[in-house]
Design a binder for these strands. Structure first.
Length: 432
RNA sequence: GUGGAUGUAGCUUAGUCGGUUAAAGCGCCAGUUUGUGGCACUGGAGAUCGUGGGUUCGAAUCCCAUCUUCCACCCCA
């Protein structure tokens, strides 16, 4: 396939037959967030590279090998955002959004870019929905954020997603655990697989999650995070659990959950799907109490999540979730002859002013072909205007599903009246 | 980045011991008499068989490379 007719690797088109699904998901997401008081924020697609190095973390895979980074014509190092939170926190600080009653609650829909090898549920350009609650240290905040995701899944009728939660401690207690882990695994280093050997120093918690049997066996007896976190973190975690219970949200504690971005503290969570392949995490998030300070703001505890929309869509399609139907054409106004064609255009214009979806011939089809086309559009009504109709001032409107024909005056008032009467009990025409 | 598969009309596929104009269904367009859809029938357009090399008298079919897509690792949403 020629390069100009082939989208870059790891990117996807959303064609008209699919776009209504995206619109539905996106609108439902924003609406759901609003029920909790999260209002949409929009930030640039690219940022200064330094922002991501600082916030996501210099040593993370995302920063080290997955960013789309380039120098612009002004010699600035620019990066297409690999995730949403960093840019939003930058915007929060830049716009002084914290100089108001806290917490600040924002939601967002963004495309993100990561240079990875594509596979099921993993693209180079992908889309996220997320929320951030900035300025609350309370475990209520964690649970409320989780509740947004849960409510969205429920609203979309997505089932079978399991909520897994964990606490990875705070800067004061995490090092203790990391050391304990390293010490433990180091004593078994000869039996670990190669990747885990590398993980030992960089990200020891990942070893807990290794797929290979040998590592899994060793991991069974490894120290557990929750035994090492400090009293404050423990209390916080208990608070999160209590609030989830109060919200009637089921969860499972999974001590092996790790977030790959450096800014996470304390609570981390994932909503995991089975059945969409290896990339089963549909939603991931947690608390990031140190991030705002790291970016130069006042210490401000925060919590949020990001949801992979492609993955969410995969789950929904795999589960056969319903999407709202696309509205079909209300009235197809066909025509024969030039004068009639102009009249058809005029009538369409008038009907659209009334809010109806109206179509007329734009390619010069025969009458028969126009009727076929009207059928293909799933038009509720159709009519053909010709010289006779122009003389009589009347058209025969056919109700397509029943074949009934009614004579109506060529007059916008009469037409809208007729359509209202005909659609009153079934306002929407469902089509694929 | 590593490993395993894949690639034929818009879509789903047939065709591979190499051999005349690459096939079908769906979709699209047009007809089946005069200005009216859904059914049926008929016809038509549409594919340099992912791309580039090579072997051969001859390749969609064999070989090499490359790209894409898919699956897993890794990583993450």
């Amino acid at each position: 396939m020629a390069i100009i007719t082939n989208a870059p690797r790891g990117t996807q088109d959303v064609v008209p037959a699919q776009s209504h699904k995206w619109q539905f998901i996106e609108q439902t997401a924003l609406d759901t967030a609003l029920l909790f008081g999260f209002r949409e924020i929009r930030v640039p697609t690219f940022e200064h590279t330094e922002l991501f190095c600082r916030s996501v973390g210099d040593t993370t895979d995302v920063v080290q090998k997955e960013m789309y980074t380039f120098e612009d014509k002004g010699k600035r190092s620019i990066t297409l955002r690999p995730e949403g939170t960093a840019g939003i926190m930058r915007a929060v600080l830049q716009n002084g959004l914290l100089n108001d009653a806290l917490p600040l609650k924002v939601s967002y829909l963004t495309n993100c870019f990561r240079y990875e090898k594509p596979q099921a549920g993993r693209l180079r350009e992908f889309h996220q929905f997320g929320v951030e609650m900035v300025g609350s240290a309370s475990p209520v905040a964690d649970a409320q954020v989780i509740a947004v995701a849960k409510t969205l899944f429920d609203t979309l009728r997505v089932t079978g997603l399991e909520l897994e939660i964990n606490s990875i401690g705070c800067p004061s207690c995490r090092p203790t655990y990391h050391n304990a882990l390293k010490e433990y695994f180091r004593s078994h280093i000869d039996d670990l697989c190669d990747t885990c050997g590398e993980r030992l120093d960089k990200n020891p918690m990942r070893i807990l999650d290794c797929k290979c049997p040998a590592c899994a066996e060793i991991a069974k007896a490894a120290p557990v995070v929750l035994d090492y976190i400090c009293d404050d973190c423990k209390t916080h975690f208990e608070g999160v659990k209590k609030n989830l219970d109060a919200s009637d949200i089921a969860y499972r504690i999974n001590p092996t959950i790790v977030r790959g971005l450096d800014y996470y503290t304390r609570t981390v969570f994932e909503f995991v799907a089975t059945g969409i392949g290896a990339q089963g995490t549909v939603c991931g998030g947690g608390r990031y109490d140190g991030l705002i300070e790291l970016l130069g703001g006042q210490p401000t505890p925060s919590v949020g999540f990001a949801m992979g929309l492609e993955r969410l869509l995969l789950v929904m399609e795999q589960q056969g979730c319903e999407f709202p139907p696309v509205q079909g054409c209300t009235m197809y106004i066909g025509s024969v002859g030039e004068a009639a064609a102009l009249k058809a255009v005029e009538l369409c214009t008038q009907l659209r002013e009334e809010g109806f979806y109206a179509e007329c011939d734009t390619v010069g089809r025969s009458v028969k072909a126009q009727m076929k086309y009207a059928d293909k559009l799933h038009a509720k009504f159709s009519c053909i205007i010709g010289d006779n109709e122009l003389v009589d001032g009347k058209i025969k409107i056919k109700r397509m599903d029943r074949g009934e024909v009614t004579e109506v005056a060529i007059d916008p008032e009469a037409l809208t009246q007729f359509i209202y009467r005909g659609t009153i009990d079934e306002m929407v025409d469902y089509t694929e």
